[in-house]
Structure formats: C-alpha cells, structure tokens
Simulated scan of single mutants.
Amino acid sequence: MDRLKTGLTPSGAENYTPEELNALVAEYGWCAPVRILRELHTGRPDPLLEVMAPWRAQSSLRQRPVDGGVFAAVPSEELIDRFLQETDLRIVAEEGEPETEVRTAPELSDAEEVVSEELARIYLAQGLRDRAAAIYRKLSLLNPEKSVYFAELIAKTENNN
C-alpha cells in the first residue's frame, strides 16, 4: 500500500483526488478503510462495503472530528456545579419494571457448588487432580445415567497422579 499518502483518517480523504481514490479502490478492493475514504470524499455510500462489512457503519473513519474547544470553554468547576444543582438525581425504576433487588454477587452455599466437566478439565490443566476428581464424583451423583463415564474419568485422573 505504498500509494497511501497519509494515514487512513477522515481528514486523509482530502489528500486524494477522486481518480486516486478510485484507483486505490480498484487495486485494494478488499480494504474497507479505502472504500470508506472514498465514501467520505464523494458523499455516496459504497454498496459493496455494506455487503462486505455491515458492522463498519460505526467505523471511526466515518465519525466526524470532535471540537475539543467546546469542552475547554466551560471550566470543570462550573460543570460540577451545574450537575450538583440538578434537582432530581435519583435513579428510579420506570413504571412497569420489576421492583426486585439487584444482586451483585452470587449466593451459593457449599451444597450448591458449581460443578461442570469444563471446570474439572480446567483443574486438570492446572494440575489440581484431586479437585478434578471431586468434581467428577459430584457430577456422577448428579447424573447417575453417566456414572460409568464419570467413573472412567475419575480412574484416569487418579491414576495419573
């Protein structure tokens, strides 16, 4: 891509003529940023880009530059004062939303310990064979129809100590 003059940025589209952008798209048709630059320059959407990568609609290349002067115009102390002067700062559930307590941590007892074959495999990978065997035993009790399968896994786990 030695023909790219500057970085692929929204302002970089201004560095190219329409002919140059078309030549780049012809040569690098697979390169979505080049197609986006051409869109920015011509103002017309690229139909192939929409088919190739529809998620590119949120591309940073399509975003307009932010004027930082707007943020510096109001001092931070004034912004904080404005926020603190707001009258209703409470977060209240909308009408019709359930009024249940939100839990931020799981509530598990020892009897409800999370067990899975994947957890046992992780323990084996970490070299924690006793824990893996314990998980397989619990799984065997929870799934009696697979007890033979778990018995074989327990034997393999214990024999590899």
Rank of each mutant, 00 (worst) to 15 (best):
N159E: 15
G96L: 04
N159C: 13
A73G: 06
P33A: 01
E99H: 09
H41D: 02
R121E: 14
L49E: 02
L139H: 03
D81V: 12
D46P: 01
G69C: 01
L124R: 08
V66Q: 06
A26M: 09
A26S: 13
E78D: 11
Y28R: 04
L49M: 05
T17R: 02
M1F: 13
I154Y: 05
L84H: 09
R62T: 03
A26K: 12
R44V: 12
E107N: 14
V34H: 00
G69D: 04
A125F: 03
E145K: 08
A155D: 15
G69A: 07
P98G: 11
A57E: 05
E94M: 09
S60K: 09
W30Y: 10
N161M: 13
P106Q: 12
L153A: 05
P65K: 06
F150M: 08
G96R: 09
A134V: 02
Y123F: 12
N143P: 03
E86H: 09
L40C: 02
K146S: 14
D130N: 14
E39F: 02
G29T: 04
G68A: 15
G12F: 00
A111E: 10
V66W: 11
T17I: 04
S11M: 10
I91T: 13
Y28M: 09
Q126A: 12
A132V: 02
E97K: 05
D110G: 09
Y149L: 11
R3A: 14
L37N: 01
S147C: 07
R44C: 08
I80W: 11
R38Y: 01
I122T: 08
C31D: 04
S140K: 13
E97T: 13
T100F: 15
L24T: 01
L89N: 11
F71W: 12
E117L: 09
N22W: 01
P47I: 03
S109K: 09
V114A: 11
A105N: 11
E20W: 00
T100W: 14
L141C: 05
D88P: 03
A111C: 02
D2S: 11
V148T: 15
L49W: 00
M1K: 12
I154G: 04
Y149V: 03
D67E: 14
R121N: 13
D88A: 13
I154H: 03
R38E: 00
S140I: 03
W55I: 10
T6K: 07
T100G: 13
D67G: 02
M1T: 10
W30P: 02
L48C: 06
R129P: 00
R82V: 06
P106S: 11
E113H: 04
R35C: 00
A134S: 10
S11R: 07
R64G: 04
V74I: 04
V148N: 14
N143W: 12
E19P: 03
A120V: 01
Y149P: 00
L139K: 04
R131N: 13
V51N: 05
G43C: 03
V34N: 00
I80R: 12
A155S: 15
K156Y: 09
R62G: 00
R131H: 04
P106A: 08
A133M: 05
T42A: 07
T6Q: 07
N161K: 15
E78Q: 13
V74E: 08
R103S: 08
